[in-house]
Design a protein around this nucleic acid. Structure first.
Lengths: 204, 204
DNA sequence: AGAAAATGTGAGCGATAGCTCGCATACTAG
DNA sequence: CTAGTATGCGAGCTATCGCTCACATTTTCT
């Protein structure tokens, strides 16, 4: 490890060929990260797995950190898209429907690539690698906003705390279900139970 | 990195002097881990920080992994002690009191050394480094056992799922409170809300 | 006291890390 | 076709890694 890892961007690909290279590198980053974990992943291994020379890799990614940051970006953009799309539909919808929808989306988000999600979770939260917490933060504010709209019909006074509780809970449940108990998603029991839990808490 | 990291134990210290050395090494492991994170932590840095030669370090710890495993052991033993002690007192106690007590203990556990806790969270879950999940697993079964005893007065049918929900929730709340919103612990609002949430869910 | 056991030391080995740079090849524009 | 630009290559640099081993020092035992 020479002096300091760089995190600034490099050249960006303008031709189709190089854009494919970049995609191949990010794909390979995902494979190697899932296989070896962050600290046993190396830029050389990623280049090899991508079928690309180490020099090419460094044309587009200035550091190991940048590789994983790009991968995170892609993964979380996919997840974020799910939510922002749903957020549209939620305005004015009754509480139970909204809660159920958010839970469903969160589970879907975790099902996109559970192994990758788990691997990303264990990446050190330094420098560019903080998107993980960003996404959860975004989830919290989304829930908070929804609650604010219908605050008259809700029991809890501090809706910021309530939103935190609910968002955290949904995240945890989805995470645990997809990674540890996928069978609990066959029937809807777990989801029903979670909806129940949240509604009992929110309703007057 | 030579062939394979070893994880078996080495010599154990019999004299007082060497026991102090071992403690100094584990202390230093905590400091370096908190400062640099797992992947930038190195055995040489730890030896330096402990004021001990690298040779001495390897007399007692066969690998970097073993260092962190020992640190985890110590940290989680402290946490586990908190809970096992409390578990005694909980038999026969009314639900609200029990829930409140568990939450209080969990928060205390997170307050022991929040930064260390956070650093340990981001350590790769491989080989010996799985105690983190072990502790949470233990928490889940503890809650499950408590619920089983008073199952007649509880609403949820599947108490395993209920225990999972509750244990996960308490973990998340405590974690978030200590690390992101320490001020929410001044007054008891957050704790009250969480107790409320759980009781509404459990009660018939 | 002195011998044996326990403990401590740190130079340095081989492996691997992240990363650069000079050069070859492929594409684009005139 | 040709000149210029974009892309791709990989040997190899330096720093650091995890770790060993021959040796020095301290403690324990008789």
């Amino acid at each position: 490890m020479p002096p300091r890892p760089r995190t600034t961007a490099r050249k960006r690909p303008s031709q189709k060929r190089s854009q494919e290279t970049v995609v191949a590198i990010v794909d390979a980053t995902a494979r190697v990260l899932k296989r070896d974990g962050y600290d046993h992943m190396s830029t050389n291994k990623v280049a090899l797995a991508a079928g690309v020379s180490i020099g090419s890799l460094y044309q587009y990614f200035p550091s190991k950190e940048a590789l994983v940051a790009a991968l995170m970006e892609r993964h979380f953009d996919e997840i974020r898209a799910l939510f922002e799309e749903e957020a549209q539909r939620l305005a004015g919808v009754p509480l139970e429907v909204a809660v159920r929808a958010i839970i469903k989306r969160t589970i879907e988000a975790h099902q996109i690539d559970p192994i990758l999600h788990q691997a990303l979770e264990q990446v050190p939260r330094i420098g560019l690698l903080q998107k993980f917490d960003d996404v959860q933060e975004r989830g919290r504010t989304l829930v908070h906003q929804y609650l604010l709209v219908s605050h008259e019909s809700l029991r809890p006074k501090d809706l910021e705390i309530a939103a935190d509780l609910i968002a955290s809970l949904i995240e945890m449940v989805s995470h645990g279900a997809v990674l540890r108990h996928p069978n609990r998603l066959k029937d809807g029991v777990l989801v029903d139970e979670t909806v129940d839990l949240i509604l009992r808490y929110l309703k007057k």
